[in-house]
Write a protein that binds this DNA or RNA. Structure first.
Lengths: 158, 158
DNA sequence: TGCTTCTTGACTATATTTGACCTTACTTAG
DNA sequence: CTAAGTAAGGTCAAATATAGTCAAGAAGCA
């Protein structure tokens, strides 16, 4: 927590102003952000691409040219079922560790699994657990997360 | 005490600053440590790998690249240590679905995991989840259960 | 002496930062 | 109305900043 990169700071700033809004949506200007943090504009893209992905629950739209902007919105999912089917659709045949953690984080954010469950599952999808002797690591991980999501969906419907 | 290796000194230093923190968690930069002790950076990895293992009650996370760090945290042994280490020893490289379910059943019986956690885990180790496109089904299952047991053993005391 | 642990450095992997160049949209002079 | 100019944002790859791995050789110890 004490060792932060510029990108971490920008991420935090954006998330904090996102939290302050009612609508969970913000509109920024890339160049203003770059000025504010004294960095090159493309670093803002970097932050958005690495920390505000769909898998992490954000949608981003932007417009170029005069009056351009970047709009970041937290995806609003209203029921557990919506969250589960959204996540289910968002994962394919392969899933990296990072994206797997993002899915679990979302499940926790939406109160679908507990903190402890999330932690246990994170350790299960880690490289140590499934990657070590497995070349198809990302396939296994995707399968595990799919099974989890399906099970959770089944639970919801009971 | 007169024959302390550099690694011993680094270990002591890290443990002393760990003790000073409330959270029992520290974040260091590998290169700073190496500078502080005038050693090569990889020696820090050596110390961590030999003296801050999970079995010794520490978890370590790290990040590379700009703003990288190494975070070391002291964790408490779970009170069910005996059961967990027994189960841990009892599983080898491969584990059938049936045996996996048996392990989970035991964990539930001993009140180490909840009913729901057991159910989620059962669906994860099922053939549908991990066997479908995986010839080494039993290996994956064993790895998953091993990771689970390790995690349970060293998670925060509840 | 022979095994174990430690030290070192070359090579690898990954995350971040930076800048040159590209694309799109709006504005305005003619 | 259109072309040129201007004002955004996007892409990509190189440079930089970290950390990880591995194996060879040195040092310690029984």
């Amino acid at each position: 927590m004490s060792h932060q990169s510029m990108s971490d700071l920008i991420e935090q700033y954006l998330k904090s102003i996102l939290n302050e809004t009612e609508e969970e949506i913000i509109e920024i200007r890339r160049s203003e952000m770059a000025d504010l943090f004294s960095c090159v504009p493309s670093q803002i893209n970097y932050v958005i691409n690495t920390r505000f992905t769909l898998a992490q629950g954000y949608t981003v739209e932007s417009k170029r040219g005069g009056g351009g902007y970047i709009r970041i919105q937290r995806v609003e999912l209203n029921s557990h079922d919506e969250v589960l089917s959204y996540l289910r659709k968002s994962i394919g045949d392969q899933l990296t560790y990072k994206d797997g953690v993002a899915v679990l984080q979302q499940l926790y954010n939406y109160d679908i699994i507990s903190k402890r469950e999330a932690e246990l599952l994170v350790s299960i999808i880690s490289y140590e657990a499934i990657g070590k002797q497995n070349p198809s690591e990302d396939n296994v991980r995707a399968a595990i997360i799919r099974a989890l999501l399906d099970r959770l969906r089944y639970e919801e419907k009971r």
